[in-house]
């Protein structure tokens, strides 16, 4: 356990050094936030489809921008991909640690580090009242806030266990870049990265409920803004989140075991 904490600390401290990059990131996040809000609210206000209210979507978008790095599928540890393609993986394998766990912790630390720098300023600014219709609201109830925190935790673990599978598939893939692009683009789109899931056609939403994508960023944000409510409903959702976490981690560990049997390190 202490070992994993040490790995987390190193990666985390390394990540929060990039303050200027974070500042540029925040500016970008704001630009995209405003763009998406204007686009989606125009669609919502133009139609009598009562899917989700525009103030709920405003809150959703700002949460998404604040925690962007946590749930962006391309925000991964490049060092891990490099170690796979350069063969440095061999060193990792000589260490008496579980490779799956280490990669998991490193990626978690990287994502948390990137998010810590960005989330707070975005949160604070978006809550300011002078933004008018662009203002983010507080959680709809205390219970919603509690569930938000709980589901954020599970969503984070869930996306990490998905990203782990991407890492592992690239070890043996013929086109690592192709695997990376395909899996991260798919994840990004179907988890609501481009358009929030509540804005997708009903049939697509129904299908997505049977995939892990539905249970990543979609859940905490929509609990926060009140689109998903009811304790019983949420408990059920948390159950499904845990189910997918177990499945994806088991699958990841199995794939890891198989590819480690096959892995060939060239030269030295």
């Amino acid at each position: 356990m202490r070992l994993y904490l040490a790995y987390f600390k190193i990666k985390f401290l390394n990540e929060i050094q990039y303050k200027v990059a974070a500042l540029a990131g925040i500016a970008t996040q704001f630009a995209w936030g405003f763009m998406y809000i204007m686009l989606f609210t125009t669609f919502i206000n133009n139609s009598d489809t009562n899917a989700i209210s525009s103030s709920q979507i405003v809150t959703y978008i700002w949460l998404q921008q604040a925690f962007y790095m946590l749930f962006a599928f391309w925000s991964v540890d490049k060092d891990i991909f490099d170690s796979i393609s350069s063969g440095n993986l061999a060193y990792e394998l000589t260490k008496p640690v579980n490779l799956y766990d280490i990669w998991f912790i490193k990626t978690l630390a990287l994502k948390v580090g990137k998010t810590v720098l960005r989330a707070l300023p975005i949160f604070l600014i978006c809550m300011l009242p002078f933004l008018g219709e662009f203002t983010m609201t507080a959680p709809v109830s205390i219970m919603a806030a509690v569930w938000f925190v709980i589901t954020m935790f599970f969503s984070t673990i869930l996306i990490l266990s998905y990203i782990m599978i991407i890492y592992i598939l690239t070890i043996t893939a013929i086109s690592p870049l192709g695997v990376k692009i395909t899996f991260s683009l798919m994840g990004d789109f179907f988890s609501g990265g481009l358009i929030p899931i509540p804005l997708m056609p009903d049939i697509v939403q129904t299908i997505l409920k049977y995939t892990p994508f539905y249970y990543i960023q979609n859940i905490p944000y929509n609990i926060y803004n009140g689109y998903i409510s009811g304790n019983l409903e949420i408990i059920k959702i948390v159950g499904i989140q845990v189910f997918w976490i177990v499945i994806l981690i088991a699958l990841g560990k199995l794939l890891m075991k198989n590819s480690m049997k096959k892995v060939v390190i060239q030269g030295g």
Binding site: T42, F43, I44, N46, S47, T49, A51, I181, T182, L185, D188, F189, L194, I195, L199, M200, P201, V204
Partner: peptide, 21 residues
Amino acid sequence: FSSMFSLLAIYFLFEKFGDIQ
């Protein structure tokens, strides 16, 4: 692929909400 998803996003929005302005 990446531009396909952008296209799909537009399609989904129109499918759900109809014409925009």
